[in-house]
């Protein structure tokens, strides 16, 4: 059986006034039915662009190269209409900020039943019932009343549950969740992630979970791709990655995870330094300037994606624990 999703050499650049901005550089990833992939990296590393490029939800200024295969079919040359027919029913997306991603002037019920009526051709009444069932499924209390509410009347966690309900309403094969919990309270985050995992198993969906927080993906994904400055710099099954971390960058990310036991108000240990300018193509490893283990070789030559065995790939001249 062909994988649900296969990206081959996927690159995305933006035409900006300062020149071509390389947001995603030659990414190759594969995902099977029911499998979940975590995409992790600092803000600005290209995670959102990667997931939107996969779906084909890019602005006009974007240039995409490489191929996207969905269920064995190359969809990278699909027309706008053909791609649109996949959205919602084949691939669905949960957006980062539930405060801004629900239409403020439409009732929850209308937003939830829209796909059911327009995409699945259900009649109003059936759609209504299905919507209420979905709201129950995402554990929303009093779903009947919820149908008539406006987004501004709900908490962030509630809104995110509704977004999830909308995304899974047409039984998609593949779910993109772009930082689904970043905007939520810590206590609500865990519940929402748990819900996502449950639904994924229930509907046998493949899922891409995008986050800047390694802690989030640990318990909820089968494999992880770590992104830095548009590159996938480490790619491994989740267990393998945590037990045998190769990249200094991944290590630095791990250190910056917020922990429940740290007193609130303490600043997170962020990684020193900044991302390189994405409009410039400088030689060497893009992380070199911030890496504690940097050598001259790192500054001179960009490391290739190396196969470390056990499905573990990394992009480093001097991986932690040495090459296998």
């Amino acid at each position: 059986m062909s994988p649900v999703l296969k990206l081959t050499d996927l690159s995305v650049s933006f035409n900006t006034p300062r020149g071509m901005l390389k947001a995603v550089r030659s990414v190759t990833i594969e995902l099977n039915a029911g499998e979940s992939l975590g995409v992790v990296g600092e803000s600005g590393s290209g995670k959102t662009v990667l997931s939107r490029a996969t779906m084909g939800l890019l602005p006009r200024t974007a240039v995409r190269t490489g191929t996207v295969e969905y269920l064995g079919t190359d969809i990278s040359n699909y027309s706008a209409k053909e791609v649109r027919d996949l959205w919602g029913t084949g691939m669905a997306m949960i957006f980062q900020d539930p405060m801004t991603a629900l239409n403020p002037v439409r009732r929850i019920g209308d937003q939830l039943t829209e796909s059911l009526v327009v995409r699945l051709g259900m009649d109003k009444k059936a759609a209504q019932e299905k919507a209420i069932a979905l709201l129950k499924r995402v554990r929303i209390p009093d779903p009947d009343a919820m149908m008539r509410k406006f987004p501004y009347q709900l908490s962030g966690g509630m809104r995110q549950r509704i977004m999830i309900a909308i995304a899974v309403s047409c039984n998609p094969e593949m779910l993109f969740a772009d930082e689904p919990t970043t905007a939520l309270d810590v206590t609500v985050q865990a519940q929402v992630l748990e819900l996502l995992s449950e639904l994924r198993k229930e509907f046998n969906m493949a899922m891409i979970l995008v986050t800047h927080d390694l802690g989030v993906v640990a318990g909820h994904t089968d494999k992880i791709a770590v992104m830095y400055a548009g590159d996938v710099v480490e790619y491994a099954p989740t267990r393998q990655l945590f037990s045998n971390m190769k990249m200094p960058y991944t290590e630095a990310l791990l250190k910056s995870i917020p922990r429940l036991e740290t007193p609130t108000g303490t600043r997170l240990p962020v990684i020193e330094g900044r991302l390189p300018d994405p409009t410039k193509d400088e030689p060497g490893c893009p992380f070199a300037n911030r890496c504690p283990y940097v050598t001259d070789k790192c500054r001179a030559e960009k490391p290739p994606l190396t196969d470390g065995g056990n499905n573990h790939f990394y992009r480093c001249w001097y991986p932690i624990g040495g090459a296998q």
Binding site: W87, G88, T89
Partner: peptide, 16 residues
């Protein structure tokens, strides 16, 4: 706005 992209991602027509 995000909710416009969200609506687009449902796969409904542009005019809708």
């Amino acid at each position: 706005e995000d909710y416009v992209m969200m609506a687009m991602s449902k796969g409904i027509s542009n005019s809708r």
